[in-house]
Amino acid sequence: MPIDTAALDASLDRLRKSPHETDVARALRRIVDSVHELLGYDGAGIMLIDEHERLLYVAASNEAGRSLEQAQANAEQGPCHDTYVQGRMVSTKDVRADARWPQLAAVLDERVRAVAGAPILLGGSPVGTLNVFRSEPGEWDDADVAALRAYADLAGELVTAALSSQEHSVTAAQLQYALDYRVVIERAIGYLMATHRIDAVSAFNRLRRQARDSRRRVADLAAEILDGTAP
């Protein structure tokens, strides 16, 4: 690792004395602005998971892109949803014609066509997604994928550092919840996949729906499923 830790320490000691803004959401918004302006897409956004396992925007470049949040919440399906659950890049050349998400076209802004999402990882587990879209159908090439993945990794470094610095903000609290409970939720999803012979997205939706219907947190239900006390 080509890092001079002595020099890094000396520099961080100096920066430590300098007050700074404490909401990582602002830094994430700057990444969205950067992606939007530099990569030339029609929109970009970052969504993070909340305690109900809903993907919510912390930053979006415009309203068309923001419709991805509500549309996927309503349809319980979509490329960002899959990116988060599967923890890998997911893309589509035309989300409105993609058979993977048949419910989505009816509730999505018409200006959103080609969509790509990259997971934002915290401690190796997904806690959100960085997504981009174009208003015309089209393929995503290797350069698009590499740049999006690199930006998502940068966002992951930022949220990791925000938690390490014990930042006090709504976003940090949201991330801490995701970090604390991600493992139990992933294990419950795995259990449901094996028990019901369903894929990860279906297991995730089943878990989330059951939690919502019983007015419990997803993490609490996941723990009950794993210890055999869930109804």
Binding site: S11, L12, S18, S34, L38, L154, L158, A161, S164
Partner: peptide
């Protein structure tokens, strides 16, 4: 310039770690 801004955002948070 954009990446330098993100570098600053990252460094100030790393500086705040225990």
């Amino acid at each position: 310039q954009r990446l330098a801004d993100t570098a600053a955002d990252l460094l100030v948070r790393l500086a705040g770690t225990t």
